[in-house]
């Protein structure tokens, strides 16, 4: 019997699993910072680069990043894309409106932070634009506190 002659059932799997991810020492510092509307990074003692969000290891130097630094709230839009789709639970759906996602540099030594960029027509976005962090009205130490970046 060839493959195409087989009979199939296609059951949808009605399960939504719950996981309890521990965020660890460094991400805790990052979210703690959010409570005071601060953006924290960690600096490598080897190459002096700053990771945002902070993390334990610099893989390039294989060194523990043991210094936390606060980053400015304003930075440069280095790269961006305009999204016409959204990925939701692994499926591709059209977006309601085109939206802007950018890589923002907050310090010349810092890694680029991926964030939504709002407050301008996506077609107007240019690399090198100055943008600033916009926080939620109520910050609570959650990933969503740093809501988006907007033209400075």
């Amino acid at each position: 019997m060839g493959a195409t002659e087989e009979a199939f059932i296609t059951p949808a799997i009605p399960m939504d699993f719950t996981y309890n991810y521990r965020i660890g020492l460094y991400m805790t510092r990052y979210l703690e910072g959010f409570k005071e509307r601060k953006i924290m990074g960690s600096r490598c003692s080897g190459c002096r680069k700053i990771a945002v969000p902070p993390r334990k290891y610099c893989g390039v130097c294989n060194k523990i990043m043991d210094e936390f630094v606060e980053l400015p709230q304003e930075g440069t839009l280095e790269n961006f894309t305009v999204g016409h789709v959204v990925l939701e639970k692994g499926r591709l759906n059209p977006a309601e409106n085109p939206y802007l996602l950018g890589l923002v540099r907050l310090d010349e030594n810092a890694s680029l932070l991926l964030a939504r960029v709002e407050g301008l027509d996506p077609a107007e976005a240019r690399p090198g634009m100055r943008v600033k962090a916009v926080w939620k009205d109520q910050v609570e130490g959650d990933y969503g506190d740093l809501d988006h970046f907007a033209p400075a």
Partner: peptide, 29 residues
């Protein structure tokens, strides 16, 4: 859900929580 397994291949304690990064938008960047 053809892109689901790549969603799970992002860091559990950051990218999967912020829901900003995915395979297609990173490729676009």
């Amino acid at each position: 859900s053809p892109y689901l397994h790549i969603e799970y291949a992002l860091s559990a304690h950051y990218d999967r929580q912020t829901r900003l990064l995915n395979e297609l938008n990173s490729a676009a960047l």
